[in-house]
Amino acid sequence: MPIYIAIFCVLPLLAGLIPEYLVCRFTRRKWWKVLPPLAVAAITALVTAGRLSVWESDVSPVTQLLFVPGVPAAFALLGTLLGWRLWKRLWGPRVVKDRRGG
């Protein structure tokens, strides 16, 4: 069971988090920040198109399409969101409150 969690959850999460953080950290253009989520969507579409042959087999196609491209894609997109939030938290401007009595 832990190997399934690693393959279907942790690896896609890291595969989304690391590129998103690096793109946000080292690029200056805003449109570059859209590339990791678009890459995740494109890879998910390619895997789904490749797995459409499952519809013709005896195995339940809904579960096959849900678990193979669905769960890893959701975790990869969550990873891109977490990568963006990590970058924002570490490198974004901070509001400092003045402790003087005003």
Score class of each variant (00 low, 15 high):
36 P>C: 05
36 P>L: 01
37 P>I: 03
37 P>Y: 05
37 P>L: 07
38 L>I: 12
38 L>K: 00
38 L>V: 13
39 A>P: 00
39 A>C: 11
40 V>H: 03
40 V>C: 09
40 V>Q: 07
40 V>F: 00
41 A>K: 01
41 A>G: 14
41 A>N: 06
42 A>N: 02
43 I>S: 13
43 I>T: 11
44 T>M: 10
44 T>C: 12
45 A>Q: 08
46 L>K: 09
46 L>P: 00
47 V>R: 06
47 V>S: 07
47 V>D: 03
48 T>I: 01
49 A>D: 09
51 R>H: 11
51 R>E: 11
51 R>V: 00
51 R>I: 05
51 R>Y: 07
52 L>G: 06
52 L>F: 10
53 S>W: 10
54 V>M: 09
54 V>F: 00
54 V>P: 00
54 V>A: 15
55 W>N: 12
55 W>S: 11
56 E>A: 15
56 E>P: 00
56 E>G: 09
57 S>Y: 01
57 S>M: 13
57 S>C: 06
57 S>L: 11
59 V>R: 14
60 S>C: 13
60 S>L: 09
62 V>Q: 13
63 T>S: 14
63 T>W: 12
64 Q>A: 15
64 Q>Y: 03
64 Q>E: 15
66 L>G: 15
66 L>R: 14
66 L>P: 00
66 L>N: 08
66 L>D: 00
67 F>Q: 10
68 V>I: 13
68 V>N: 14
68 V>E: 12
68 V>Y: 13
68 V>D: 15
69 P>W: 02
69 P>N: 06
70 G>S: 07
72 P>A: 04
72 P>G: 05
72 P>D: 05
73 A>Q: 03
74 A>R: 01
74 A>N: 04
76 A>V: 03
77 L>H: 00
77 L>I: 07
77 L>K: 02
77 L>A: 15
78 L>A: 15
78 L>Y: 06
79 G>H: 06
79 G>A: 08
80 T>L: 01
81 L>G: 11
81 L>S: 08
82 L>N: 02
82 L>P: 01
82 L>F: 05
82 L>Q: 03
82 L>T: 06
83 G>M: 03
84 W>M: 11
85 R>I: 03
86 L>T: 12
86 L>R: 07
86 L>C: 09
86 L>Q: 05
86 L>P: 06
86 L>E: 05
86 L>D: 00
89 R>A: 13
89 R>E: 10
90 L>C: 08
90 L>D: 09
90 L>E: 14
92 G>P: 01
93 P>V: 03
